[in-house]
């Protein structure tokens, strides 16, 4: 390692100590793009900043898993994807259709409830894991804070998929997004539209929303902002 590089690394370490908000991992700098420009705008850095915790609140059958795993697949270039799957519902063939590289996936199935948060924290704390994905039904304030600190420490991204009821609770996530299914004029089995709304964003405005079309075409998941008029009202979930 050259002297200049060592000097820069020491400077970064010093900055991390003196500015607690800066992600602590050496690999933590940088922004990860979701692949959908309109979604990227929801995040302060026009993309998901490493060390961020993103909370996705959605009802059953809304398409949130497809959306989040399709986005996670686009972040896999930065490292492994850890799926914490307590209920044993994660279906790998569908994940592959969503674009996930299964060779880079660690599926964790903790049997005991308290181990879910422990596994989640360990995974978030690991710098080699780019995205940690988990469905979390209930979480207390203190544990949530621990997860946020773990994400900052690891420098990856945490995706917490929460039930609809969680939208009123306290959140330590950087962004809380609401996902609900939208009607399509000509619905088909391979295409669906989801409405994504910002419920909370650290240091930014909320109440922004965007619609995203998900195409499951020949096993290639494509995300795109819909063309034309998008002002129709979404269905109540």
């Amino acid at each position: 390692m050259s002297g200049d590089e060592t000097y820069r690394r020491l400077q970064r370490k010093l900055a991390r100590i003196s500015k607690p908000g800066v992600p602590r991992s050496g690999a933590a700098e940088g922004v990860l793009r979701t692949g959908v420009a309109s979604l990227d705008r929801f995040f302060a850095a026009c993309g998901i900043q490493r060390g961020s915790l993103v909370e996705w609140v959605a009802g059953e059958g809304s398409g949130v898993r497809v959306l989040t795993l399709a986005i996670a697949s686009r972040l896999q270039h930065a490292g492994a994807l850890a799926v914490i799957d307590q209920r044993g519902e994660f279906y790998p063939p569908a994940a592959k259709s969503a674009g996930v590289n299964l060779d880079q996936v660690i599926v964790v199935r903790p049997e005991v409830g308290r181990n879910v948060l422990w596994s989640l924290e360990q995974s978030l704390r690991c710098p080699g894991v780019a995205v940690t994905w988990c469905c979390v039904r209930e979480i207390d304030d203190r544990s949530f804070r621990r997860l946020k600190l773990a994400t900052e420490s690891g420098g990856g991204v945490g995706f917490l998929v929460r039930p609809w009821q969680a939208r009123q609770g306290v959140s330590w996530a950087d962004v809380r997004l609401l996902v609900r299914s939208e009607a399509l004029p000509n619905p088909g089995p391979l295409q669906r539209r989801v409405h994504v709304e910002v419920l909370y964003r650290r240091g930014g405005r909320s109440n922004e929303s965007v619609e995203v079309d998900i195409y499951d075409d020949q096993g290639v998941m494509r995300l795109a902002a819909p063309m034309g008029d998008t002002t129709r009202h979404g269905r109540a979930s």
Partner: peptide
């Protein structure tokens, strides 16, 4: 990480598909 998870949760809880 895989070592830690496997040794706490059991080897059958940390999987690949």
């Amino acid at each position: 990480l895989i070592d830690r998870l496997s040794n706490r949760l059991g080897v059958d809880a940390v999987l690949r598909a």
